[in-house]
Design a protein around this nucleic acid. Structure first.
Lengths: 168, 168
DNA sequence: GTCGAACACTTCGATGTCGAAATCTTAGCA
DNA sequence: TGCTAAGATTTCGACATCGAAGTGTTCGAC
């Protein structure tokens, strides 16, 4: 009677059924549930890969955010962008600085602020990790043709464009 | 020089650019980044809503998993399905039991196992939360027509069907 | 039947995160 | 200038999570 862990597809099917039974709209729940399920699975893989690279998911979020921004950000901004409390950022930055991935310098124009920047080592680490994960991600999308990928990306970007409006 | 938090669309654009610059493939990164960004934002909303309802995201994951399964699951299975260490599940279940959302009964057939079930109160809580979040989710998808939603769901489900193969 | 390996859950110590309070800096206003 | 309010970061105590070790149960080989 050992109920095995069901496949991702089966979990998705059940989740949608449960949400619809609870009063959700089907066309909405199919999309949202799929997005969440896919993201969860990706997170699991990233966590495993990052463990191999000797970094926490939270620390990676900081590195990636700095890489995406391309410039310098304050601890508060990083906390906001990576979705953690500002007080939690202090220790994270300590560890990343120890590791040589970031630089912390006081802002000359406003001494209440500290500017965090990615070091060269930080950039190299980011690039290395991305090239590693791109392989897995390509595998995941292998059943979609190029046209389908673009159409999928387009629709998701339409949804994303709406996010800030809904937020308010 | 206060660099404001950029819009979700802008964050997405930058993230894809950074990933591609680091060596990722564009058609892959556009999709993956969009899925992750969307999921993050949804998680933020859920966390806020769940805080209002007086429950943790982790505890909600347990309730939702039990609701999706429809039957009884063991602590180990719940830990696996909600992506958490088995040892962490003990305390979570304690709190959910205190709250009256779950029942814990020893498995008569195998006394090393414990069966966790949703109570009637647990079901009602699940249903209430789902109906609340469905409103936000519908808003997010409002720019997609019904045909587009189905096409989006279809493609995402194709990707999900591939997940277990890639996992192995 | 008995022994040992495997399994399921819990306990334990270490660490990460949170929200509130403390510290220091800046901005606005009289 | 002097005073107060607001902002940015860190410190602090409480709590959740993790991996490892501990306890009790089941299963299979002999």
């Amino acid at each position: 009677m050992a109920k095995r862990t069901p496949s991702a597809a089966e979990q998705h099917r059940r989740a949608v059924a449960a949400y619809v039974a609870a009063g959700g709209e089907e066309s909405v729940q199919r999309v949202i549930t799929a997005v969440q399920g896919l993201s969860r699975k990706l997170d699991q893989w990233y966590a495993r890969q990052l463990t191999d690279l000797g970094i926490t998911a939270g620390e990676w979020a900081v590195v990636a955010t700095l890489a995406k921004d391309g410039g310098a950000l304050t601890p508060s901004q990083l906390a906001d962008l990576t979705n953690v409390a500002p007080s939690s950022m202090t220790h994270r930055l300590d560890k990343l600085a120890e590791r040589g991935f970031i630089d912390r310098t006081p802002d000359a124009e406003n001494r209440t602020r500290i500017l965090v920047r990615l070091t060269t080592d930080g950039w190299e680490f980011f690039s290395l990790a991305i090239r590693g994960s791109d392989v897995v991600e390509s595998d995941v999308l292998q059943d979609l043709g190029d046209d389908e990928r673009h159409e999928l990306a387009r629709m998701l970007e339409v949804v994303i464009a709406r996010l800030d409006d809904v937020d308010a």
